[in-house]
Amino acid sequence: MSIKRYCYACDLKNDSKLIAEYKAYHAAGNAWPEITKSIKDAGIVDMEIYLTGNRMFMIMEVDDTFNPVKKAEMDANNPKVQEWENLMWNYQQELPWAKDGEKWISLEQVFKL
């Protein structure tokens, strides 16, 4: 089985109270179990989110079963995931170059050692 990495960026609203709340939702053990299950069920074997200021970077490691289109369909048909995503929109905002409604933007790799 091979592992592939995907990297994304998204902004939080630039409000220290909202950023603290967002971080609390994502602290160890606080993410809803239905959300972590949906992540794992999609073939994502590891996911990390990093924050600087109000810009976040997500790094996902996925196995051969992962398909981004299938993951989007699974999420769209999962009421609990939709509830979580709607809640997270209270904290997140689109990057200036995002398409309407686009949340996490894929990063282009420009260097690899």
Rank of each mutant, 00 (worst) to 15 (best):
I59A: 09
M47L: 15
T52I: 15
E102K: 09
E94W: 09
V81E: 08
A31P: 14
N30W: 11
K40F: 00
G101D: 07
P33E: 11
M74I: 02
G53R: 03
N78L: 01
D15M: 04
Y50S: 12
A24G: 11
D75K: 15
N77S: 02
Q82D: 05
Q109K: 15
L51K: 05
G43P: 08
I59Q: 15
D64S: 09
C10P: 10
Y6E: 10
A31T: 13
F57R: 11
W89G: 06
W97Q: 11
A28S: 08
I105N: 12
S16Y: 14
N67M: 00
W32N: 08
M74K: 12
W89D: 14
E102M: 00
G53N: 10
D63V: 01
R55N: 10
I44V: 03
A24F: 12
I35V: 09
F57H: 12
E102S: 06
M47Y: 14
D46V: 10
A27L: 00
A72M: 10
D100G: 15
Q82S: 06
M88L: 15
K71A: 04
K112D: 13
K23T: 09
D41P: 02
E61V: 03
Y25H: 03
K17N: 14
F111D: 04
K99Y: 07
E85Q: 15
A24W: 13
L12G: 02
I105S: 12
G53Q: 00
L107M: 09
K99D: 13
N77P: 12
R5P: 01
M58D: 14
S16G: 11
C7T: 13
R5L: 07
E48W: 07
E21H: 10
L18W: 02
A24T: 14
K112N: 14
L107K: 07
E34F: 05
S16W: 10
D64F: 04
V69Q: 12
A20F: 09
G101I: 05
E48Q: 10
K40T: 06
I3E: 13
A28W: 04
